[in-house]
Design a protein around this nucleic acid. Structure first.
Lengths: 290, 290
DNA sequence: CCTTGGTGATGCAAATCTGCATAGATGGCA
DNA sequence: TGCCATCTATGCAGATTTGCATCACCAAGG
C-alpha cells in the first residue's frame, strides 16, 4: 500500500468528486481516479460507490476514512513539529484573516517586516471561512472568535470598540438619525452574518426596526466601503471608521467591544519566521489601537 | 509532502543504512536516498546525519520519527480493518510459527484446507522471532508465549506436556540415564534460548550439571532431529517425540506442560479466509493432542 | 427539443521516477 | 600498508506516472 494514496483518498472523501479532489490537491482528475483505483486494488476492497452526483463511501470506505484521518493528523503533526524547529528567517508563512484586518493592519505590518526580513514570504489569505490551523492550512490566523482547541496558542492583540458611522455626503442628504426612533427614515448597511445569527439586530444598542436596509455585506471591509460611498449608516470599529474619515454618529453610545485574537499552533509558534510575522502583526495592532 | 516518503523514512530509521532500508522495502538503494532527499526538501529540514557507519537521526529526525510511527500504526489499522471486512474465501493469509509446529501441525492443516479452499494462499513463515501482528507483519501467529496486547485475540489450541527422549541407537550405546545423577555420562541436546534465559536448566526436573552438552539448537525441530540422530537426550513435547518414534525416558517424571496459543488481531479475525485458516490449525492441534 | 455546465473515462505524449551499473569513500583486518 | 567488504552518490536507459485533450454521460434549465 502506498501511503500517499491515503492522502488522495481523503481529499476525495471530502470533495465527493474526482475533479474537486484534483483541484484541492493541485493534480489532475485522471490521476485521482487512478490513485484511488490503485488503493482499492492494494486493499482488495471497494471504497466508493460511483453514484450519480459523485463518489460516496462504502462501509469499507468509512472505516478507511477514519484511519486515514488519523494518518492525516499524524502527518500534519510531523510537518508542524519540524517547522517548529526551523530557526531560519526565510521561507513561507501563511496568514489567514478577514479582508478588513488584512488591508488596514496586516499588509502594512508585513510591508514593514519585509524591509527588515526580505527572506520571509507571506501568503495572505483573506477569507471569511476559518481555516484549520491543526491541519496546517495556515500558520497564523487573526480572528475575532477565540478557538477552543487547546493545541492552539491564542493571544489577544487588540480590543476594539465599534461605533456607527456615515459619510459626510450621507449626513448632508439625510441628516443624523434620531436616537430612540429605531432609524426611522434612514438607510442601513449591515453585516450579513450578524443578520443570519438569529440574534436581535441592533446598531449602537438601537433596534433597526424602522430603518431601511440598503445593503448587506459579507465582510467588514465591504461594510466600510458601502458606508464610505454614502449608502447608509453602518457599524464599524472605531480605529477603522476614523481612519476612513467617516463621521461618527452618537459618540456617547458605544457598541459592545470585541477582541481580536492572534492564533497559532503550539508546534509552530517557535519557528523564527512565524514568530517574526506574529510580532509584526501584534505591533501593528498596538500602533493602530494606540 | 508525499506521505509515502514517511514510510521510506521509517524504514531508514530502523535500518540505519540506505541498503538495509531498500532491502526491507524491496526497492533500490538509490530510490531510498532520493525519497529521503525529497522528504527533507519538502520539510525544509535535515532528518539524518550522514555518519560513518550509517544514517543517524538528527533532533528533527527524532521528532519526525515519532510522528511517522503514528502514521504507520494508522496505516496498519486501515489495512487491518479493511481486511477484516473481506468475506471472500481467497487471497493471502500470512502465518508465523515455529518450524516444529509448522512441519508437524500447520502444514498438514493447510494441506487439508487447501483441498477445500484452493483460493486461499498461505504464506508460512517459520521464525524464532516474534512478528508484530499489530504492524500487520503476519495475520496469524502460533506461539508458546501469550502476548499481552489487548488488541490481539488469543486462543489456546493445545496444552502439551514434554518429556525427555532419546533415539533407540543412543539408548543401545549409552543406556538410559540414571535419575538423580544429573545425567552423568550422558550427552544432551538443549534448546539454546532456554540456556540463554538465565534460569536453572533442568530436564524432567533433573539438573544437567554432570551431563555433556552435545549440541544446542535454536529451534525445537532441530532438537528433535538431533535427538533422532542419536546425538543425545533432549526434551521434546510428547506428541512430537512419539510421532518421531523416539524412546521416552523416565515416563513417570513430567516436564512442566506448556500452552500453545493461536493469536490474531481483533480487526482481522472476522476475515473469512483468516477464520478458515485459524479453524484448520486449531482442528489440527485438537487432532494431534486428542 | 437543444443547450449548458458539470461529471468520469481513456488514448497519448511528456515528465518523472526507478533500477541498474559504476565510481568513490570508508572502515576492518591481515 | 594494501586488500576487501560495505556503504553512498550519480549517470543513464527503461519503466512508470502524470497531465492534457477529448469523448461520453447526465441533469438542469431555457
Amino acid at each position: 500500500m502506498n501511503w500517499d494514496d491515503a492522502r488522495i483518498f481523503l481529499a476525495l472523501c471530502r470533495e465527493q468528486t474526482l475533479r474537486g479532489a484534483a483541484r484541492v490537491l493541485g493534480i489532475d482528475q485522471a490521476t485521482v481516479g487512478r490513485r484511488l483505483a490503485s488503493l482499492e486494488h492494494a486493499l482488495g476492497a471497494t471504497l466508493f460507490l460511483r453514484t450519480s452526483g459523485g463518489y460516496s463511501l462504502t462501509a469499507a470506505g468509512e472505516v478507511a476514512m477514519a484511519a486515514a484521518l488519523n494518518m492525516e493528523s499524524s502527518a500534519a503533526e510531523l510537518q508542524r513539529q519540524i517547522l517548529g524547529m526551523d530557526d531560519r528567517m526565510s521561507g513561507v508563512v501563511r496568514v489567514t484573516t478577514t479582508d478588513s484586518f488584512a488591508i488596514d493592519v496586516v499588509i502594512p505590518a508585513i510591508a514593514r517586516l519585509h524591509r527588515a526580513q526580505p527572506g520571509i514570504e507571506v501568503q495572505l489569505q483573506a477569507s471569511t471561512q476559518l481555516l484549520n490551523l491543526s491541519k496546517r492550512e495556515a500558520d497564523i490566523a487573526v480572528r475575532t472568535l477565540k478557538p477552543e482547541n487547546p493545541d492552539l496558542i491564542v493571544r489577544r492583540v487588540a480590543r476594539w470598540s465599534s461605533g456607527i458611522f456615515a459619510s459626510a455626503a450621507y449626513v448632508q442628504a439625510h441628516g443624523v438619525p434620531e436616537p430612540g426612533t429605531a432609524f426611522a427614515g434612514h438607510h442601513l448597511v449591515l453585516y450579513q452574518p450578524y443578520l443570519d445569527s438569529g440574534k436581535e439586530v441592533t446598531l449602537a444598542s438601537e433596534p433597526i426596526t424602522h430603518g431601511r436596509i440598503a445593503m448587506t455585506c459579507t465582510s467588514g471591509l465591504l461594510v466600510r466601503r458601502a458606508v464610505a460611498n454614502g449608502l447608509g449608516v453602518g457599524e464599524i470599529p472605531l480605529p477603522l471608521g476614523e481612519a476612513d474619515g467617516l463621521l461618527r454618529l452618537w459618540p456617547a453610545r458605544a457598541c459592545p467591544p470585541y477582541d481580536i485574537w492572534l492564533v497559532t499552533h503550539k508546534d509552530v509558534r517557535h519557528t523564527a519566521r512565524v514568530r517574526a510575522v506574529i510580532d509584526a502583526i501584534a505591533e501593528a495592532f498596538a500602533a493602530v489601537t494606540g
